[in-house]
C-alpha cells in the first residue's frame, strides 16, 4: 500500500525528501483553502475576545495553548461569567473531550515502532478540526516514519498563522462597523455546523448534531450552569441509542 501513488497530490520526491523536507512539506500543506476559512473564523474569535474584554496577550496565549476553537469560546464564556479556575477547567475539559477520539483515529497512521511518546504528545497538541481533516486527507503521501514530523509542520504553521491573525485583529480592527463584526461572529458557528456535519464518521454523528443543536436551548432554560454537559450527554446518548437500534435491526434483517 505505501507504494501506491496518490491520485490527486503528486509528490515528485517521494521517499527522497530529508526530514526537514517533510517538515516543510507539512508547512506547505497547511497553506490551503480550509486554512483560509479557519483564519476567518479566528478573525471572528478575535472579535469575540475583544467584545468580551480580553486583552491581546491573553487571547494570543489562549490560541497557542488551547488551539481548538470551542474550548476557547467556552473559556471566554467562563471568564466572563466570573467562574473560578476549576469550574472553568471543567467546562473547557467537557468541550475538549471530542479531541480524544480524533487523536485516537490519527495515531495508527503516525505511530511506528520507533515513535517516542513525548513526540506524539507534542504532535497531538496540534489536533483540532482543520488540522485533523487535512491530515486524514493528505497524510498517505508521507512515508510513515516522517508523518509525525510532517504533522508537526502542518499543525505548528496553522497555529502560528492564527496567533498572528488574532493579534492583527486586535491592532487593526478596534472599531469595526457593527455589520462586519456581527458577520464575523457568525463565521464560527457556520464553519462548525458545516465541517462537523462533513466529518461525521457514522449516521449517529448526524443524529448527535441535530439533537445537540435542538436540545441546547431547552437544556439552557432548565440547567444554565451545565447546559453544554447536559446537551452532550443527552444528545450523545440519544444518538448512541439510535446507533444501537439501527445495528440491532440491521442484524435482524440479515
Amino acid at each position: 500500500m505505501p507504494d501506491s501513488s496518490p491520485p490527486e497530490t503528486p509528490v515528485p520526491h517521494y521517499r527522497s525528501l530529508s526530514a526537514a523536507g517533510w517538515y516543510l512539506h507539512g508547512v506547505r500543506t497547511a497553506i490551503s483553502i480550509p486554512a483560509v476559512i479557519l483564519a476567518s473564523t479566528f478573525v471572528g474569535f478575535a472579535a469575540l475576545a475583544i467584545s468580551a474584554g480580553m486583552s491581546v496577550e491573553h487571547a494570543v496565549f489562549m490560541t497557542g495553548m488551547i488551539w481548538a476553537l470551542p474550548g476557547k469560546v467556552v473559556l471566554i464564556g467562563a471568564i466572563n461569567a466570573g467562574n473560578g479556575v476549576l469550574s472553568a477547567a471543567f467546562a473547557v475539559a467537557l468541550s475538549s473531550m471530542r479531541l480524544t477520539p480524533m487523536v485516537v483515529a490519527l495515531m495508527p497512521e503516525m505511530r511506528t515502532p520507533r515513535s517516542r511518546n513525548w513526540v506524539l504528545c507534542l504532535a497531538s497538541h496540534f489536533v483540532a478540526v482543520t488540522a485533523w481533516v487535512l491530515a486524514m486527507e493528505k497524510m498517505h503521501v508521507v512515508p510513515p516514519e516522517r508523518r509525525t514530523l510532517w504533522f508537526i509542520g502542518l499543525g505548528s504553521t496553522l497555529i502560528f498563522i492564527n496567533m498572528v491573525v488574532v493579534a492583527l485583529v486586535y491592532f487593526l480592527a478596534a472599531d469595526l462597523p457593527d455589520v462586519l463584526s456581527a458577520a464575523l461572529l457568525l463565521l464560527t458557528p457556520l464553519y462548525f455546523v458545516t465541517s462537523l456535519w462533513g466529518s461525521a464518521r457514522e449516521r449517529a454523528g448526524h443524529v448527535a448534531m441535530v439533537a445537540g443543536i435542538l436540545l441546547w436551548p431547552l437544556v439552557h432554560l432548565v440547567l444554565p450552569e451545565f447546559s453544554l454537559l447536559a446537551t452532550g450527554v443527552l444528545g450523545g446518548g440519544l444518538a448512541y441509542g439510535y446507533h444501537r437500534h439501527v445495528r440491532v435491526r440491521g442484524k435482524a434483517a440479515t
Binding site: P70, E202, A208, P217, G235, Y240, H243
Partner: peptide, 18 residues
Amino acid sequence: VLVRAVATALVAGVISSL
C-alpha cells in the same frame, strides 16, 4: 461511537449557543 456521539452533541450545543 458513544464518545464521538457525546462529543459531537457537545459541539452542536456550542453551535446552538453561539
